[in-house]
């Protein structure tokens, strides 16, 4: 599903943030991505969702070497990935409903389908009372759920969540993670970046740990093995 081979990454002429990172994720797997602040978790996710290109190394997404992919193939690859951004990136001039509908509109879905799908999903994340609210009027936890809803509305094959529990207390954080686990059971491959070790320890999923630009994979039990 996702394969990194000796991937290195630096921003411009800055220091190298990822050194020779290699790993492979099987379809349907669930990984945490941990590491101290500034370790490069968001950077690694950006490489996966094709928002930046590696300085060196090989990235294979959905069995496609992305360095060889034509520019016009990339939108289709990107649509198979849902992203929950660390800073949400909700559009303040659009209602909650339109924010969540955005990936469907981008993909050219029919307006009639969009309404029902979005309403149903917002109901699932407990926001059916806020369909027409503006993101600016929501609490941090509500925004987080809008961001998650937007990331999964298109039924992505791969869900990347950057600190999806960063703005909520642990009780809500655990509920959000259960929500994401449900998606995983439906077949979605998941990577969750977080520094909340307590939360990570409550789940049985393998952990990719980034430190000083080096990635190590910790497995907790036989179940999570890849």
């Amino acid at each position: 599903m996702v394969r990194f081979q000796n991937v290195g990454m630096r921003y411009g002429l800055g220091p190298e943030i990822l050194h020779d990172v290699s790993f492979e994720l099987e379809p349907g797997s669930f990984h945490f991505l941990t590491g101290p602040s500034g370790a490069g978790k968001s950077t690694l996710l950006k490489l996966i969702y094709l928002a930046s290109r590696p300085s060196h190394g090989l990235i294979t997404l959905f069995d496609r070497d992305i360095a060889l992919a034509e520019r016009n193939e990339l939108p289709a690859l990107r649509r198979r990935i849902g992203v929950v951004f660390q800073e949400f990136r909700l559009l303040d001039h659009l209602s909650v409903m339109d924010n969540v509908a955005l990936p469907l509109r981008v993909a050219g879905a029919k307006e009639s389908d969009i309404r029902d799908n979005v309403a149903e999903l917002l109901d699932w994340v407990g926001l059916s009372d806020h369909l027409q609210s503006r993101p600016a009027t929501l609490s941090g936890g509500q925004k987080q759920r809008v961001a998650i809803a937007r990331a999964v509305i298109n039924r992505p094959h791969l869900l990347l969540a950057d600190e999806p529990t960063g703005n909520v207390d642990d009780r809500i954080g655990i509920r959000l993670l259960y929500l994401i686990e449900e998606l995983n059971k439906l077949g979605t491959t998941i990577i969750i970046a977080t520094h909340n070790e307590a939360l990570v320890s409550r789940f049985d999923h393998p952990e990719m740990h980034l430190s000083d630009g080096v990635l190590t994979i910790k497995r907790k039990s036989a179940q999570g093995m890849v």
Binding site: L50, P75, P103
Partner: peptide, 16 residues
């Protein structure tokens, strides 16, 4: 720029 980058990352075609 932010919104455009977001749409781009969501898989919007340039034409969109």
């Amino acid at each position: 720029h932010d919104v455009i980058e977001l749409l781009h990352v969501m898989g919007a075609h340039d034409a969109y």
